[in-house]
């Protein structure tokens, strides 16, 4: 039953490292530093301030788009509606708000409850009728996108308000700090989520539900409620990430969200969070940073977007092979 008895004898230092890795994404941080150093050495100007800020902005976008994925994976689910809600959110605050003449904040007031309701519905349906969230989220993502595209008609081109683009422009500042607001937002969100997951009743119930849904029910955790809230929150986070993406790219097209489905999965998995836990959002942050750093360095060396897709796929496979294996082995002993 004990992990120590089951594993073959190893050297002390090696075992200490393995134990540390289980608690903290050590390996990922080391790789992050290695990737950065390689970039600085091989690419001129890579270590410069603006370049670093740019990488951080891209990582922040990836990280913010991965919040919902992290939460749904921790409760033992999956969220494939990320891309759909990103584009829905992005369209809503640009084109739709323009067409309906409700302004950014009017659109925002539709976006928040809309995403919560649709996401919550997925959580409810998949829990109540035991349907794979994989299928339901995929369906709901395209459903949400369809609703938003309805009023916007055929031409899907939206423009971001100018103040919004300031959020994530690498040259903008936040209250005098030389970083754009999106990075500050990411840091604050990361801290808030870390505190929520680790130190609140709600966060603990989320972990209990993911770790063993049957035992959680016996421990009087209302797992359906947890499931509904997790998926509602996830949809909201994706829609808000869409708003951030608008601010970054300045305009919207229906394929805006596509890469983020795989980026969010890859960030969570590379960070070392496994289905139903253990894991947390800080791991996803490290995962997003690592992925962005490696991609940026490789793009600097001529990596194409097709190569990137191959890389994300390979990374997910590799990480699943490593973490999936460890977890199962410990569980079976």
């Amino acid at each position: 039953m004990s992990a120590a008895a089951g594993s073959p004898p190893r050297r002390g230092a090696w075992r200490a490292l393995a134990a540390a890795q289980r608690r903290f994404p050590l390996l990922q941080l080391v790789l992050l530093v290695v990737a950065f150093v390689v970039g600085v050495v091989t690419l001129p100007g890579f270590g410069g301030g603006l370049s670093v800020v740019s990488v951080l902005v891209i990582a922040a976008l990836a990280g913010l788009a991965s919040i919902g994925q992290t939460i749904t994976i921790l409760v033992g689910g999956f969220d494939l509606s990320v891309a759909g809600f990103i584009v829905a959110g992005a369209l809503l605050v640009t084109q739709v708000s323009e067409q309906l003449g409700i302004g950014f904040w009017g659109a925002f007031l539709i976006l928040v409850p809309g995403a919560l309701v649709l996401g919550g519905l997925v959580g409810y349906l998949s829990h109540r009728f035991r349907i794979q969230p994989l299928i339901l989220t995929l369906a709901m993502g395209s459903f949400a996108l369809g609703i938003v595209r309805g009023p916007s008609g055929l031409a899907v081109v939206g423009q971001a308000p100018t103040w919004l683009t300031g959020l994530s422009s690498p040259i903008s500042t936040t209250f005098g700090l030389p970083v754009p607001p999106i990075i500050v937002i990411w840091v604050l969100v990361t801290i808030a989520l870390a505190v929520f997951l680790r130190f609140t009743v709600g966060g603990r119930r989320l972990y209990l539900t993911g770790a063993n849904p049957v035992a959680a029910e016996y421990a009087l955790v209302r797992t359906r409620r947890v499931w509904v809230i997790a998926f509602a929150f996830s949809a909201l986070c994706s829609a808000l990430a869409g708003v951030m993406l608008v601010s970054f790219s300045g305009n919207v097209d229906p394929n805006l969200g596509n890469p983020y489905l795989f980026i969010s999965l890859a960030a969570v998995i590379v960070g070392g969070t496994t289905g139903g836990g253990p894991g947390d959002y800080t791991r996803t942050v490290v995962g997003a940073l690592l992925l962005t750093m490696v991609t940026t360095v490789l793009v600097g060396h001529g990596l194409t977007s097709a190569d990137q897709q191959i890389m994300y796929g390979a990374v997910i496979l590799l990480a699943m092979a490593i973490y999936g294996r460890e977890r199962r082995i410990r569980d079976r002993v």
């Binding site: 972990y207 209990l208 770790a211 035992a215 421990a219 836990g277 253990p278 569980d331």
Partner: peptide, 14 residues
């Protein structure tokens, strides 16, 4: 009953 990857303390307080 058991939340297998969680700590003794977390299992106790569930």
């Amino acid at each position: 009953s058991i939340f297998d990857w969680m700590s003794i303390l977390e299992n106790f307080t569930a």
